[in-house]
Design a protein around this nucleic acid. Structure first.
Lengths: 190, 190
DNA sequence: CGCCCAAGTCAACAGTTGATGACTTTTACA
DNA sequence: TGTAAAAGTCATCAACTGTTGACTTGGGCG
């Protein structure tokens, strides 16, 4: 009441920059590259809109910066190859806690239509997903197996994003999970 | 040389409407719902921009109309279930002739991020793809199998759209095709 | 032919977007 | 303390969006 709690943060370029980066991450994941506006992002970060352009140069450069912060999809690689299917299927379908890796997938699929975002997207996808994935898989044609599994994951995530899972009951979801596990496993096994 | 061939089409409301519909189809497939502008669509159809709004009321109604023209993914269902994988894998990956069904998939994935397009998309997806697909599949949990196969197809198409297949040589493509066939088959079989 | 309504055109609107240059405020150092 | 540079703000630009209303043109019917 007496006053707003910490009404104005002490000036800190690094913190501000990070706040913008976080806000941009969320907006890009929710609305895609074209859909997210710099003004929205700035508002989320509680920052003047001009600062975004000032810090990152342009929207596209901000996008690249966000993509560069992507974790190397590391959580998908924690475990054995033999239970990859069930593990990843559970992680994708039980999206109560939308973790980082899946969020970056959302950014990608939501920005797939944008011409400006296409090239950064392609590069980031290879560096942060396909290449480490293929390396983790190993064996013959690891790149093809990684790509196929990645495509399947992307398709399922996108389907979830579109349908909001309105049209599947609990039993159907369990069935989808087990079948997805099987198909995923078929995609990655040599 | 002497003059433009048929410099001005004789006035024909039905033909003009169809021209707009075709142009909208192509633009939506290329740039998604948000990315495609009515002015671009009108220019493609060689029509004044105002006519688009006049004929279809609003951009969203035009989008719905385009989606309603979608073929029932019929070309995927011509053949036996046992060779579904190889058949569809070939059709998707040899996209020299991007046929209608895949084009509508492009519209969907490119417009997935748009809030305005979400609801029409979801409806069209069920009516024109999932439901007839599940009906064609038959057997236990046909809806789950249809959804999984659909998600895989969507993911692969989207991956193609993003990467433009820059990063796969001829041998890799052959390998991808055969493996996709196997995985697709695993998705649809009971 | 002459009319009249449909078909098509033009200009403009209000809103939003990304970006920029000039301005003010704060921090940190000497 | 005084000051210069960093950090943040403000107003504004030009471009583009979907949409609308008033206008002009054309072809088919009497």
């Amino acid at each position: 009441m007496v006053e707003l709690p910490a009404p104005s943060r002490t000036r800190n370029a690094a913190a501000t920059r990070q706040a913008i980066l976080d806000a941009a991450h969320n907006r890009f994941a929710k609305e895609g590259y074209d859909g997210a506006s710099l003004r929205e992002i700035a508002a989320d970060a509680k920052v003047d809109a001009a600062l975004v352009s000032r810090y990152f140069g342009s929207k596209e450069e901000l996008f690249v910066e966000v993509l560069n912060c992507a974790p190397d999809a590391s959580d998908l690689f924690e475990g054995t190859l033999s239970d990859f299917g069930t593990r990843v299927a559970a992680k994708i379908l039980d999206d109560r806690d939308v973790d980082q890796g899946v969020e970056y997938l959302l950014i990608m699929l939501r920005s797939a239509s944008s011409l400006a975002a296409a090239e950064p997207l392609r590069r980031s996808m290879r560096t942060h997903f396909h290449d480490p994935f293929a390396a983790w898989l190993g064996g013959p044609q690891a790149d093809v197996r990684a790509r196929l599994a990645g495509d399947l994951i992307m398709g399922v995530c996108m389907s979830q994003a579109i349908t909001s899972d309105h049209d599947l009951d609990e039993e159907g979801r369990a069935s989808l999970r087990s079948r997805l596990a099987k198909v995923l496993q078929a995609a990655v096994e040599p």
